[in-house]
C-alpha cells in the first residue's frame, strides 16, 4: 500500500517505540536499583541491579493474598463482561421499540464519572449485602458499554442468511446464539477479556471504598504501603508497579491475535 522504503518505516517505528518505552525503562531501572529518582544528573544505565526490591514487595504486603483477590475479582468481571455483554449486544442487533432510547441510555451512562457515584453506589452495595466481598467489587464493572458495542458489531457482521437458515430449520434462539454466533465472535470475546481484565485489574477507588477487611484487599490497594512518608520505598514502589503490570501484559500477549481481529469487526463493520 505504501511506497516508503522499509528501513524508513522501521526507523520511524523505532523512534516511536523508544518514546513509548522510556517511561517503562525508567520504572524498570528504578525497580532494580532503587536509586533516588530526584538525584541529578540521572544515571542512564542501572548500577548494581538486583531483584531484592521485588522480594521486599512480596513481604511488605500480603502479596499472594492480594493477588488471589485480584484474580478472583478479575475473573468475575471478565466472565460477567463476556456473558452479559454478549447478551446485551445480541439484543441490540434485533429490532424492537425503544432500541434508540436504550442505546442513548447506554451512551450517556458512559459519561457519568465513577467518582460522583461513590456514596450512592456504596449505599446500594450495602443494601445488596455485598460490602467486603469479591462480587461487590466486581459488580459495577460486570457490564461495560464499549464492550457491548464490540459484541453488537461482531454479531452484526455475521451474515443474516446463516441465521435465517437456522431459524427456518427450527433451531431455537438460544441455540443460534451459542452454536453459531458465539463461536463466530471469538475476537469479540478476546477483546472483552482483555479490556475487562485491564479495567478490573487496575481498579482502585471502588475496592478502596467498599473493602474494610485487610484479607479482601486487591493488589492496587497495596500501593499505599509504598507511599508512606517516613521510609525510602522508591525501589519497592516501582517493583510493585511492574509486578502489577505483568499480568495485564501477559493477557494481552496471549489474546493479542483475536483481540486485534475483534476490534476490527467492532470498529469498521458498522
Amino acid at each position: 500500500m505504501t511506497r516508503y522504503p522499509k528501513w524508513a518505516i522501521h526507523l520511524g517505528l523505532a523512534i516511536i517505540c523508544t518514546l513509548m518505552l522510556i517511561p517503562f525503562y525508567w520504572v524498570l531501572k528504578t525497580s532494580l536499583t532503587g536509586e533516588n529518582i530526584f538525584s541529578y544528573p540521572p544515571a542512564i544505565l542501572p548500577e548494581n541491579p538486583h531483584l531484592f526490591y521485588y522480594v521486599d514487595v512480596w513481604y511488605s504486603i500480603p502479596f499472594f493474598r492480594y493477588l488471589v483477590n485480584s484474580v478472583v475479582v478479575s475473573i468475575i468481571v471478565v466472565v460477567g463482561n463476556v456473558v452479559l455483554n454478549a447478551m446485551a449486544g445480541y439484543a441490540l442487533t434485533r429490532d424492537f421499540t425503544g432500541k434508540g432510547s436504550v442505546i442513548m441510555l447506554f451512551l450517556s451512562c458512559m459519561m457519568i464519572p465513577f467518582q460522583v457515584t461513590i456514596i450512592p453506589a456504596y449505599l446500594i452495595t450495602k443494601e445488596l449485602g455485598l460490602l467486603n466481598s469479591h462480587l461487590g467489587m466486581a459488580l459495577p464493572l460486570c457490564s461495560t458499554i464499549v464492550c457491548i458495542f464490540v459484541f453488537k458489531a461482531s454479531f452484526d457482521a455475521i451474515p443474516k442468511s446463516l441465521i435465517d437458515a437456522a431459524r427456518i430449520d427450527g433451531v431455537p434462539d438460544w441455540m443460534i446464539i451459542f452454536r453459531i454466533m458465539v463461536p463466530l465472535s471469538q475476537s469479540a470475546i478476546a477483546t472483552n477479556i482483555i479490556l475487562a481484565f485491564i479495567w478490573s485489574w487496575n481498579n482502585f477507588l471502588w475496592p478502596l471504598i467498599i473493602i474494610r477487611d485487610n484479607d479482601m484487599q486487591t493488589l492496587p490497594l497495596g500501593l499505599a504501603r509504598f507511599l508512606t512518608v517516613v521510609e525510602d520505598t522508591t525501589g519497592a514502589l516501582y517493583a510493585f508497579c511492574i509486578m502489577v503490570l505483568v499480568p495485564g501484559l501477559m493477557i494481552f500477549l496471549l489474546a493479542q491475535k483475536q483481540f486485534i481481529a475483534g476490534l476490527t469487526s467492532g470498529a469498521a463493520k458498522g
Binding site: N85, A88, I119, P120, I124, L139
Partner: peptide
C-alpha cells in the same frame, strides 16, 4: 421477551451503579 431478558442484567447494573446515583445527585 428474549430481547428484554437479555438486556435486563446490563440495564440493572447500569441502573444500580450509574442511573440511581445520578438521580441521587
Amino acid at each position: 421477551l428474549l430481547i428484554w431478558f437479555f438486556l435486563a442484567p446490563s440495564l440493572l447494573i447500569f441502573a444500580l451503579y450509574r442511573i440511581i446515583p445520578l438521580l441521587w445527585n
